[in-house]
Each structure stands twice: as C-alpha cells, then as structure tokens.
Amino acid sequence: MSVQSTLEQKITEALHPMHLDVVNESHTHNVPAGSESHFKVTVVAQEFEGKMLVARHRILNELLANELAGAIHALSLHTMTPAEWEEKGGIVPTSPPCRGGSKARTS
C-alpha cells in the first residue's frame, strides 16, 4: 500500500475526521520522481475539541510513528475542530519550499 493510502487509512480509522486531506508534496522537494517523502495533512475532527495544538499533533505523530521513522521525511500538520474549520472557511496555509539542506530523516 502507498504511504499516502496508509496515512489516509490510519487517520480515518482512528479519528473519523469530518474532513481529511493528504497531499503528497514530494515533487516540490529534492527527491526522485514518484517519492512519498513529504506530506501535508489536514485533519478536521471533533476529537481535537478542547485540545492544545501540541496535543493534537502528538495524537497524529503517535498514530503515524512508523511512517515518520521510515518513509516520511517531512510532515506538515493542520489540525482543526469542525468549528475552527468553518471559521477559517476551509483554508490551509501553503507549505514552505525546500532548501535542500539535508536529506536525512526528521526522526
């Protein structure tokens, strides 16, 4: 199974998100074509209600620990409750361009 499908499946099963968007941004980085190394994940879930951002990210970091220790080099996370998502009008910031400094893993 592709890394992208794994992310989608794990997050869906664990958090039952109202909205989930997994974008493979690897093509904008210094990696071979077809890579699955850089992802941007937007999760809108009721589960995040009352939790600080650090706690929300920890949930996802733990859920995706295997992927972070292996295939994934960079993971951008945008975590919102349904109310926050609505307030933002469903807009997510763009990820930064690569600066090519290190191909080493992030974890």
Binding site: V54, H57, N61, S76, P93
Partner: peptide, 22 residues
C-alpha cells in the same frame, strides 16, 4: 517525544514545530 524538526521551546516547554509556531 516529538519526532520532527524544527522544535521550539519557551520557558523549557515544547511549543511545537513549524506548523504550530506559525
């Protein structure tokens, strides 16, 4: 117990990475 870089600490506490800081 935070798998990625960068990491920001304020008063000895982890604030988070790039997305949270921004």
């Amino acid at each position: 117990n935070w798998p990625t870089f960068p990491q920001v600490y304020i008063n000895g506490e982890l604030i988070g990475g790039c997305d949270i800081t921004l």
